[in-house]
Design a protein around this nucleic acid. Structure first.
Length: 600
DNA sequence: TCTAGTATGAGTGACGAG
DNA sequence: CTCGTCACTCATACTAGA
């Protein structure tokens, strides 16, 4: 859970024989994203992984690495590392101290006894908050009804009393962990009686993922509920240990997440494991079109919550395909008013006059960090001027391709131009001049805007917080950028009591500070400059100072995930994108501290 | 030293023909 | 089902000039 790029680097560097050697990079080491994710997913600590690679060389096969790490654990040499068991239970949301204590008492291999020891701590919570699965607007529950429950229950006639009792306990344990009775029963039935609790939880998570992806994201008209659901379950049965790796994330079409108001297919309820129900709420964002396996990893590290993929073109005039993982409620969402302009011509009326009839675009593509050069727009002008009247087909194609690629709009006869920064601000839902002045260069504005949230989209998701926090909200904002989340909350008129913002770029910090002052915010703004320096102790101090955080919001760097990167699109192990694991670390600290603060 | 301008593909999914 | 085609993508690195 708390894997950091820094951690890997430090470990590898310190164990290197040559201190002057350049810091080895995971990629340079030939260490693939998948391999890393697989090992982490198996519960091995980063230290162990790094050590095993050092020992076996970068080109060693995964199985060799695993063997080596296994030796470490069997030799009990992992005292300084978090064991698989610790990671496993931390991943379930138990506190570190409790976990270590329980493992010490029962031994690392007795997972069930550890779990039972841990459960009383949450039982009271679970009893206070009985597991009531929210009613699904989609007919998942209906398809449940089709299942013959009696066949799932273990009859005393068929099973020996011990086995029955054991399963009964497991069923209760799973329910206490936040899974529905149905899911728990199904898992017990499908996985058999000799599997451990963690295998059962894996099975349920995989089934939930499969179910939610299939049903939440499928085109409503194309849904074939119970037939397909049953089929999927049979498939899972063949691979009871199937993790989410084996269930690739599919991007929905249309990419509307849980839906939009006044549009067909709106979903207003979903079931989340009890353990991730907020507060604290969290909201994580990144590019939808990441390399294969990335979203599976992200989802797995964020409590197996399926990402909500939304293309902002359904909310404004520019595309922005993003995935959001959050534990926010999804009922009673509402859009910001006034809604943004929906088409290019509405957003930029002056372009209509010059828009060629053969350019059929009504929406712009994604706003990126770079813009077209003057040379390019001049080439377009020359090409069109060479053919007065309707240009030939190949010229049209060239021009249209370039317009799509560089997001050009028509600002004069034969004159295509890239968007100006203030036009980007408009499309992204920021106030005019939000990024202007204060020492920021034009290029930096493009870069900051290209890396930002689309405010209307984020605000639509965050709107559910308004009724929940009428007196205001404490926000921990990671990778703040130009403050898309803060602007969204402000435009939703949700008072921000406290915002602790972490942002590395100085110009972006200045932008947020200016915004804070210009909008006469009454709350406190704390600006920090590096997530890696936000230690666990510091987080807890801040939480004690401000009374905890209600929302942890942020989109970690996409540099190594984005399609536009031709140099270092190395996935989640990339230098910048690996900061995702910092998000996980910080979120987990906030969650644990919140739980402790609520208990005391 | 800083800024702006410019060139630099590949990975991925959708779609349709065969 | 496979294959080819198409469209799209929160970018990086180098260079020239102020």
């Amino acid at each position: 859970m708390t894997i950091t790029r820094v951690g890997i680097r430090m470990m590898v560097t310190t164990s290197s024989s040559s201190p002057t050697e350049a810091t080895p990079d995971l990629v340079q080491m030939g260490f693939s994203d998948e391999m890393f994710a697989t090992l982490v997913d198996m519960g091995f600590s980063v230290e162990m992984i790094a050590r095993a690679i050092q020992e076996n060389g970068p080109n060693a096969e995964t199985s060799v690495i695993i063997d080596t790490i296994s030796k470490y654990t069997s030799n009990s040499e992992a005292s300084s590392s978090k064991s698989k068991a610790i990671d496993h239970f931390l991943g379930m949301g138990f506190g570190e101290e409790e976990v270590i204590k329980a493992i010490h008492e029962h031994g690392e291999e007795n997972m069930e006894q550890i779990l039972n020891a841990l459960l009383p701590g949450v039982v009271s919570e679970a009893q206070k908050l009985p597991v009531v699965k929210e009613e699904d607007d989609i007919n998942w529950s209906e398809s449940d009804d089709e299942i013959d429950y009696s066949s799932l229950m273990i009859s005393d006639d068929e099973k020996d009393p011990d086995s029955s009792l054991k399963n009964d306990n497991r069923l209760r344990s799973l329910v206490k962990m936040g899974f529905s009775q149905l899911d728990a029963s199904l898992a017990l039935e499908r996985c058999g009686e000799n599997v451990s609790i963690d295998e059962l939880t894996d099975f349920i998570c995989a089934a939930q993922m499969a179910r939610e992806f299939k049903e939440f994201y499928a085109d409503p008209e194309e849904q074939k509920p119970r037939h397909d659901v049953k089929k999927r379950r049979v498939e899972i049965k063949r691979e009871p240990r199937a993790s989410t790796d084996d269930e690739p994330v599919r991007l929905p079409n249309p990419m509307i997440g849980f839906g939009l108001p006044n549009e067909p297919g709106l979903i207003t309820h979903r079931s989340l494991p009890e353990i991730v129900k907020g507060p604290p709420y969290f909201y994580y964002e990144n590019v939808a079109l990441a390399p294969k396996g990335v979203w599976e990893t992200i989802s797995r590290h964020l409590y197996d919550i399926p990402p909500e993929f939304v293309d902002s073109k359904y909310l404004c005039a520019a595309a922005r395909k993003r995935g959001y993982v959050h534990n926010l409620p999804i009922s009673n969402r509402y859009q910001l008013q006034p809604p943004p302009k929906y088409t290019i011509h509405e957003a930029f009326p002056l372009t209509k006059r010059w828009w060629p009839t053969w350019d059929s675009r009504t929406k712009l593509n994604c706003i990126l960090t770079c813009t077209a050069s003057a040379k390019l727009t001049n080439r377009i002008r020359l090409a069109l001027e060479a053919h007065p009247g309707e240009p030939p087909k190949h010229i049209k194609k060239y021009v249209i391709d370039q317009c799509r690629k560089w997001n050009l709009v028509w600002v004069g006869k034969n004159k295509a131009a890239p968007l100006e920064p203030d036009e980007m601000e408009n499309l992204l839902g920021f106030p005019r001049n939000h990024t202007r002045g204060g020492g920021i260069s034009r290029t930096e504005r493009f870069k900051s805007l290209g890396n930002s949230f689309q405010v209307d989209t984020v605000a639509y998701h965050l709107s559910v917080l308004k009724d929940m926090f009428p007196k205001g909200i404490n926000v921990l904002s990671l990778f703040t950028g130009i403050g898309g989340g803060e602007v969204a909350l402000h435009r939703l008129q949700i008072p921000m009591k406290t915002v602790v913002s972490v942002e590395k770029t100085e110009v972006n910090r200045n932008i947020l500070k200016d915004f804070w002052e210009q909008t006469n915010q009454k709350g406190i703004l704390v600006e920090l400059d590096d997530v890696e320096e936000l230690s666990n102790n510091k987080i807890e101090e801040l939480m004690e100072q401000f009374g905890g955080f209600d929302l942890v919001i942020g989109g970690s760097p996409c540099n190594n995930l984005a399609g536009g990167n031709r140099v270092s699109r190395s996935g989640l192990v990339g230098e910048q994108s690996s900061l995702f694991f910092e998000y996980c670390r910080i979120l987990e600290v906030v969650r644990e501290k919140t739980a402790r603060m609520r208990r005391s």
